[in-house]
């Protein structure tokens, strides 16, 4: 983990209340798919944990996709090209990249971004990748073309049916009878819980409110599935856990 002043290369809206920001950072060389950064936003005390969407270790850049959910993320949208941001990272565990025959990547809303670098790297090692993306509606959807351009097969679900399957990502999986050797997922707990009933192998990335992002404050803990005395910090041992490890 390092703390660095990273520079904004671009910051633009890509969907309803959703922004993509590219940052110039030395720490890009240390990043792994599924990790996150903790950003200090001027005028706010606590840092904002945001997942890493993709990175370029040669050009020392990385991309985040964030949703405006409050005053802090609203403030992020005002950053201009050339502005600096106090950034801590990369943090947390990552999606292991191993060559498998098939992988199903499932993301809901702001759970979609970390799957992009993961898809890219899985495809690079020869894994056949299918992606299921879930959004509130067509206006909130993003990165569908980007995933397709990587060479993944993409399915979409929207809550109101304005794009793709009407319903949740789990409806798409059932409807299309999608199977894979491994699942890689990021999104709300309810979604992860359903996926655990369908897949025995894979990795799930959890979301939680955090304060420190480095394992000190105990704000984002979850329990082990078997051992009730054992707990994990989503920011430190997570956010990515193997299927079956976390007790809901």
């Amino acid at each position: 983990m390092i703390i660095e002043q990273v520079q904004v290369i671009s910051n633009q809206q890509i969907a309803d209340a959703t922004y993509e920001m590219v940052l110039k950072a030395e720490m890009a060389t240390k990043m792994k798919p599924g990790q996150f950064v903790n950003l200090k936003v001027e005028g706010f005390l606590l840092r904002r944990p945001i997942s890493i969407c993709q990175y370029d270790q040669f050009n020392h850049t990385f991309t985040i996709i964030y949703k405006v959910v409050g005053d802090g993320t609203q403030k992020l949208t005002t950053l201009k090209v050339g502005d600096f941001l106090d950034c801590m990272g990369p943090l947390g565990s990552h999606f292991p990249i191993e060559a498998q025959t098939t992988a199903l990547l499932v993301g809901g809303g702001v759970g979609v971004p970390p799957l992009y670098e993961t898809a890219k790297q899985l495809l690079a090692v020869g894994t056949q990748v299918q992606v299921v993306l879930g959004f509130a509606d067509a206006q909130a959807a993003f990165y569908i073309d980007e995933f397709e351009q990587l060479g993944a097969t993409v399915y979409v679900a929207t809550d109101n049916g304005t794009l793709g399957t009407h319903g949740r990502v789990t409806n798409v999986i059932a409807e299309q009878q999608l199977t894979a050797e491994y699942v890689y997922a990021c999104g709300p707990e309810a979604m992860l819980r359903v996926l655990e009933t369908r897949f025995e192998k894979g990795y799930l990335s959890f979301e939680a409110r955090m304060a420190c992002g480095i394992g000190a404050c105990m704000a984002c803990v979850c329990k082990d599935r078997e051992d009730t005395d054992l707990y994990y910090r989503i920011c430190k041992e997570g956010p990515v856990f193997p299927v079956g490890k976390v007790g809901f």
Binding site: L46, A208, R209, A211, M218, C220
Partner: peptide, 8 residues
């Protein structure tokens, strides 16, 4: 139980 923190 979570959430355990909130910014002010």
């Amino acid at each position: 139980p979570l959430p355990r923190v909130a910014e002010t």
